[in-house]
């Protein structure tokens, strides 16, 4: 938003986007369940040029103790970007943006995990963005769901996430970094496909009410694509990757 005018063509006359995709086509997505030895559950995702690693610990004792809840387990999420993950070196200390994203991802996962079965404990989700290229919160949320499932935490559904947006007055799926900077709107969506529930929803950019509706629907379709890949990743790890 508010980026400088440039020669970048966001959408050409054939409806092809700046990175060669069609309007309803997501970037290349690769999800792998497991991978880390010490974490109770882990996942790795490549979403276009995003590379994100997630480790999950717990249910385990809560430190500091006063955070523990006698009725339910608690979920804690830290979203963190490495200094080398972006063009200009990022200060390693958590920024206000990272604190907000940690919070929205936590609230997106909470409806999915059944923590009432583990009172007085904590489940910690550590998200490390190794390389960022637009849409990290969606990729991180998708990977975090897989890591939680890999840790054996009881879940109502996986949360799949994908962004929709608007460039050149057209609603598109999966906004990349250039489109986010120069485009008109970006709407990240987290969705539980089986329960048909939206658990993460943000928007910046101007949409008419019709575009708003179309954007949410487009994003949900993207989430369903991610959902299949999440299930495949878990299937590959636990049932071998013999058959497709």
């Amino acid at each position: 938003m508010g980026g400088r005018e440039s020669e970048l063509v966001l959408l050409d006359e054939n409806g092809i986007r700046c990175d060669g995709r069609k309007v309803d086509e997501p970037r290349r997505i690769m999800i792998k369940a497991g991978g880390l030895k010490n974490a109770d559950g882990s996942a790795y995702i490549e979403f276009g040029d995003n590379k994100i690693l997630v480790g999950v610990f717990g249910p385990r004792d809560v430190h500091p103790k006063h955070m523990s809840n006698t009725d339910t387990g608690i979920l804690r999420v830290r979203y963190h970007m490495e200094p080398f993950s972006v063009t200009e070196r990022k200060n390693p200390a958590p920024s206000r943006r990272e604190i907000e994203i940690s919070k929205v991802i936590k609230e997106a996962l909470e409806p999915a995990v059944m923590l009432d079965k583990f009172p007085r404990t904590a489940v910690d989700v550590f998200i490390e963005v190794l390389q960022a290229d637009g849409g990290t919160r969606c990729a991180a949320l998708s990977a975090a769901s897989v890591a939680l499932a890999d840790a054996g935490i009881p879940m109502r559904d996986l949360v799949a996430a994908c962004a929709a947006g608007k460039v050149a007055d057209t609603v598109i799926l999966d906004v990349n970094n250039e489109e986010d900077q120069a485009g008109q709107a970006d709407m990240p969506i987290g969705y539980m496909p089986n329960l048909e529930k939206i658990t993460l929803l943000q928007l910046d950019g101007v949409l008419t009410p019709e575009e708003y509706k179309k954007c949410v629907e487009t994003g949900i379709n993207g989430c369903k694509i991610v959902y299949d890949l999440q299930k495949k990743a878990l299937h590959d790890k636990y049932f071998g990757n013999g058959g497709d």
């Binding site: 609230e107 709407m187 048909e196």
Partner: peptide
Amino acid sequence: TDSDGNICALQKGGSDGFSLDEVIKCGE
């Protein structure tokens, strides 16, 4: 929303989710 009735920013929060219909209704 802005003066033209367009939606220009949105934030969901809290430990539960919304259905598609609820999200559309909230927009209205």
